[in-house]
Design a protein around this nucleic acid. Structure first.
Lengths: 215, 215
DNA sequence: TGTTAGATTGAACAAATGTTCAAAATAAGA
DNA sequence: TCTTATTTTGAACATTTGTTCAATCTAACA
């Protein structure tokens, strides 16, 4: 789909530093607004205002609202996948697999990224939106399913006595629990009346899913 | 907020049978379209077309888009709450509480209603949308939190050794897993390569959450 | 430094959307 | 049956929204 660059034709320029900076501002703004208001709830003008650029710029870099949404999801997807895959690689290298280690390799990287960068927090909400809305099924399939398959295979190998459908169900339960923790910490705090440390919550999430997977 | 009816003023009529039927058609249509496209993605005209009525009718019965959304959530919320509360009452009456029984009382009624009536399936998607979107927090609080508190209290009593925050976390994980099963059966089927019976999946969900809660 | 591909800007446009409204149709109650 | 409160209908309206575009500006490259 991306334009192929002919050998000898019009010269083509590298994007300027300013252009790249603008593109990033646009994507940051899109991420924030989409996360707050959803796809249809967000307007190009909201995003432009958030980015501090005129509306035309959004289209110039985004290429239409839907394409902009795609880019917003795509921008961080590979970073997340790589972090997860390298985490599972590390686990593999370190010796005997455990359920907790596999789950941690899937779950922890997302939280670590979320801690580092405010944009990742918006991204987490965005992923939660995408995962609950069937209209974005294709997006999920493209950006998240491949990595999910790797971890699913790992679970299958680790739980030979459980049936394949059961592991699939448990995996989906675990992912949704993870997204709930990523997006609903405040709600949990209200329900319990106090705010727990995130580290404890993540440990607990991993224990919860491991126990559930073991049955 | 509803208009107080003065003792002696203009006579007031009961809604006609036809009017009630129209209102139901409107809410059915709203439920389906909101579930498919989300709040902003749905249009009054989509809903009117789905209901087979002119646009004006939607406002006459719905009272604006946001009020219509409220009504759509509200219409089935009490049925669901009552089903859950009477299920937990039955469990209480039957003797010693178990974790599985409490979870079943929370989870099973939703699936049973979903099996009976196609509209409930749309409603489940709608609830998933609402629960992932902070803009509807007040709606959740009004229609779902009171019942959730009852079950949360039950879990607290049943797990005296666990901390309150841990139980709150586990409860939120469990609810999100339930919503995942309600809305993502197809995705689970694709992942596992076969379609499990829903009854087995529900049993598994309850076991998963119970194991997670026990730690 | 001069040339020019690419980036920025904001006005303009057509389509879609939520809402309003007045006239016509309907049925509940006297 | 007659009266009249409700309900139904669809046209009309003001906004909002995604998108387009031509003019202007900027900086990469020769």
């Amino acid at each position: 789909m991306t334009a192929v660059q002919p050998q000898e034709s019009k010269r083509q320029r590298a994007p300027s530093k300013r252009s790249l900076a603008t593109r990033e501002r646009v994507l940051d703004a899109a991420e924030a607004v989409f996360a707050l208001r959803g796809f249809e709830g967000a307007t190009i003008r909201d995003i432009a205002a958030e980015a501090g650029v005129p509306v035309g710029t959004i289209h110039h870099h985004g290429g239409g609202k839907e394409a902009l949404f795609h880019q917003t999801i795509a921008r961080r997807a590979e970073t997340l996948s790589r972090a997860r895959l390298s985490a599972i690689q590390r686990v593999r290298a370190e010796g005997p697999m455990t359920l907790e280690a596999v789950l941690a390799a899937f779950i922890r990287p997302f939280f670590e990224l979320t801690d580092q960068d405010g944009g990742w927090r918006h991204y987490a909400r965005l992923v939660a939106f995408v995962s609950v809305d069937d209209r974005w099924r294709a997006l999920s399939a493209k950006f998240f399913d491949p990595t999910a398959e790797v971890f699913f295979a790992e679970l299958l190998a680790l739980l030979p006595r459980a049936s394949r459908p059961q592991i699939a169900e448990s995996f989906v339960f675990s992912v949704s629990a993870m997204l709930a923790l990523l997006t609903s910490r405040e709600r949990i705090g209200v329900l319990s009346g106090e705010d727990a440390a995130q580290e404890d919550q993540i440990d607990h999430l991993i224990r919860f899913c491991a126990a559930g997977l073991r049955g």
